[in-house]
Design a protein around this nucleic acid. Structure first.
Lengths: 341, 341
DNA sequence: TCTAACAATGACAGCGCTGTCATAAAGTTA
DNA sequence: TAACTTTATGACAGCGCTGTCATTGTTAGA
């Protein structure tokens, strides 16, 4: 006995067959109109469109995806949405996908590779056309899925490593290195580092290493460092700097892993009457608007987050199949001199 | 002639049939193990699980969704990710969905009801189990889809209105009203308002109206107001306050639509040597961490964003079908006295 | 006038999974 | 021991759409 139709769907939920019947065409023709694909006579198209509007038809993408063994989904896995960095990337992706058939689907991994793996697998169950993730470091299982899948892959933010398919970003190691060079050139000698404790923030770690390298080359080294437990935040930056200064008051500059924490550092200085730049230089990373809107604009490095998202999505749209050659796109960075270091 | 299998899928992409064959059971039994549904003998379950692991099987959710006429997706439509407010809501949703079968799917509407409608329709094509959106105001088409769909609906942030199914949030009108009362009680009389030009930020508008009402009741009114073109940002707040003060230097307090802009206002005061609170009170909305981390904590209203997301998602999980009764949950708000007004 | 090329449409089967009902075996109650 | 319930499993069809191939005009070129 066949399954009753109404057990499945509301009677008023029209299918493509209903549209086709009303328009007086075959299902496949209606399907072609919906997908804007193949040659369709203008009059036919109009009839079908009218039928769609009249019925309030919404295509069933699960059926479409099943039949065509593919979807128009683009899975986006981001470590966090807690500061503006990844939303900026997301805006870039959105911008590239506007007026295409693709839809971004967002997951948040909390900087945890295992969560990333779990979300990746659950996204792959929807047969996405492409997967976008942050960084080049994933669990072995995740990497295997990424390599064997029939979809494009873009790894964002970082280019220091071996991508699966496309990498778009900048060298964080080099950014850290240039930070050190810049500050040394400006006369700073007694460096502190005020970080956070998220060990899987690979980019922050790479910048830290780059910084240390440039100090070493100049015969210097970090005088003091402190990592505040928990994730990065303005409060963490403020607390971290307080502890750092208590440990070593002789510091003349402190580098933070990002602008949020650096702003916390500035707030601590304001609170404690420490003259920023004269007495203590403060340097961040990201070039957030809020830091530049401060009375004393934050000295930092501008990462091109919107561009990274935009470029990655555009690149992914170029071809549905993964090319032989891997692509690495360096979006670079700029030092913002600012007024705090 | 039947379609060739390999035209569709990689040969090494196993299906449930492959799993069932390897485990020596029927497809249905394998399916039940995957979905953890129905009575399964422990030994059978283990055999199937082993087969899944061996083959690296990933279920095809499009097929599952098609067959069951439903999905485990929860569509989340947010106006913006450009400040921490909606990511906080999202964290709440994520927290509620951890360890459930549901997956959030996020879309960003840019405060545009038409974009919201477009994204809603494209999400409905995936037959979500629930839809979460911000606010109670949608296009007529969107509202119709929401009302007629076979899914749960939660409208977040705002409770001043008539929800489709569930509303979780606070009264922004009342928040604006209490802001006025609080500031009047603290002795402020010459009120300014420094906003932005996004007309569809309904919550900001409601707070504005509430503020005006409380002023009226006290025999006062806004002395000056300015709306900076473009979306809300720290820079916009800074510029807006500058213009406002130029227009009327006699103001003794300025209310901003949110903390981001209020911080911009404080930055302007710092830059121009205006004594915050003594000379000019500054009041925000949201209670963001960054505002509280400032040397002079921002006077503002705490909205419970995480709680809103969490509560909404939990409520949606309670039942798959829409109950007769609509639910309105007021998560309330708190005035944070701070040091700026 | 005939062929070739193209434009426009349709028939058919099947994508991978799950709802429904049926069945067999084992346990429970009177 | 009969009658029932519970547990564990399977057969079958179909969810709504699209890939593939076939068919019918229609127009251009020789």
């Amino acid at each position: 006995m066949p399954r009753k139709r109404n057990a499945h769907r509301s009677p008023d939920m029209p299918t493509l067959a209903d549209v086709a019947r009303l328009a007086g065409v075959s299902e496949i023709t209606a399907s072609r109109v919906v997908r804007d694909q193949g040659p369709i006579a203008e009059t036919t198209r109009r009839r079908v469109l009218a039928a769609i509007a009249e019925l309030g038809y919404i295509p069933n993408r699960a059926a479409g995806s099943l039949a065509s063994a593919g979807s128009t989904l683009m899975s986006v896995l981001l470590p966090s949405l807690s500061n503006i960095v990844f939303p900026d990337v997301l805006r870039g992706i959105h911008t590239a996908l506007t007026h295409t058939a693709f839809q971004p689907v967002i997951g948040v991994t909390d900087y945890d590779p295992l969560i990333e793996e779990r979300i990746l697998v659950s996204f792959l169950a929807w047969q996405p056309a492409a997967v976008i993730l942050a960084g080049l470091h994933h669990t072995p299982t995740a990497r295997r899925h990424l390599e064997h899948g029939r979809f494009r892959v873009a790894e964002l933010m970082d280019i220091d490593g071996d991508p699966v398919d496309i990498a778009v970003g900048m060298s964080h190691r080099q950014a850290g290195y240039e930070t050190g060079r810049h500050l040394i050139q400006r006369g700073y000698r007694r460096f502190g580092y005020a970080g956070h404790s998220v060990a899987t923030d690979d980019r922050a770690s790479a910048r830290y290493e780059g910084l240390c390298t440039s100090l070493q080359e100049a015969g210097l080294s970090l005088v003091a460092e402190h990592r505040q437990p928990g994730p990065s935040s303005t409060k963490a930056g403020r607390d971290s700097l307080e502890i750092l200064i208590a440990a070593d008051p002789s510091l003349d500059v402190v580098v933070f892993p990002n602008d949020d924490m650096a702003m916390g550092g500035i707030f601590h200085c304001m609170h404690s009457g420490i003259a920023v730049r004269e007495k203590l230089g403060i340097f961040g990373f990201n070039g957030l608007d809020i830091g530049q809107a401060m009375p004393m604009p934050l000295s930092t490095i501008l990462s091109r987050r919107f561009l990274i998202g935009l470029t990655a999505a555009e690149k992914l749209l170029e071809s549905r199949v993964r090319p032989q050659e891997k692509t690495i796109i360096n979006t670079g960075f700029d030092i913002i001199e600012g007024a705090t270091a």
